[in-house]
Amino acid sequence: MIQVRGLHKHFGDLHVLKGIDLDVNKGEVLSVIGSSGSGKSTLLYCLNSLEQIQKGSVHVDGIDVHAKQTDVNKLRQKLGMVFQQWNSFPHLTVLENVALAPRIVSGKSKEEAYAMAEKQLKHVGLGDKLKNYPSSLSGGQQQRLAIARALAMEPEYMLFDEATSALDPEKVGEVLDTMRLLAEEGMTMICVTHEMGFAKEVSDRVAYFHEGIMEEIGPPEQIFQAPQSEHTRKFLANVL
């Protein structure tokens, strides 16, 4: 379970997150929506300690993420992350991209790591690209590679930071399908997204962020059909 309490984040003078309280339960799919600059992505970065926080706390399965004694490298193995820019490692083959971290971080043997990598790549539909270099893949394929790479660490949570925003429109579907598949398999997911269709269909809850505040959180029916907040109503009127 992820517990966020009274979280504040500043970038210099810019107050990006203004006291966020949020619980995400095991097996839950939470979509985070809101306009650019509302702090959605920063929230994700605070969850796996990519960004330091100024006030409040984040606990993942009871571990205080920002405590000094916390081993962040170990913690990050619980939290797979997929970025908007897929960040495949260009100098490694598709198979090596996925097998590297299981080998050097989890200490798996080469055979085990490669077997795990192959399994995850087949899982996301890249079983025929093992020997390719990322430069020969399309954006959608590279993003699925990034998902397989995160899954190979056997994370308990997956964080998606606008995973489809940088893709060509016709490639968005294949990545969303992969995310949908994960959701059906019971993965706990937090998806920062601009895909309202995905948020509506796949998530258990949807959170709307506005200028660093979580304006509203609830089941998709509430957010999309009967939003409580004026800001949410306005935002949805613009994007739907």
């Binding site: 796996n48 490298n73 970025f83 960040n87 971290a101 989890s106 995160a150 660490m153």
Partner: peptide, 8 residues
């Protein structure tokens, strides 16, 4: 960032 996110 991506490498660190994998626990490296």
């Amino acid at each position: 960032k991506a490498a660190r996110c994998l626990g490296m």
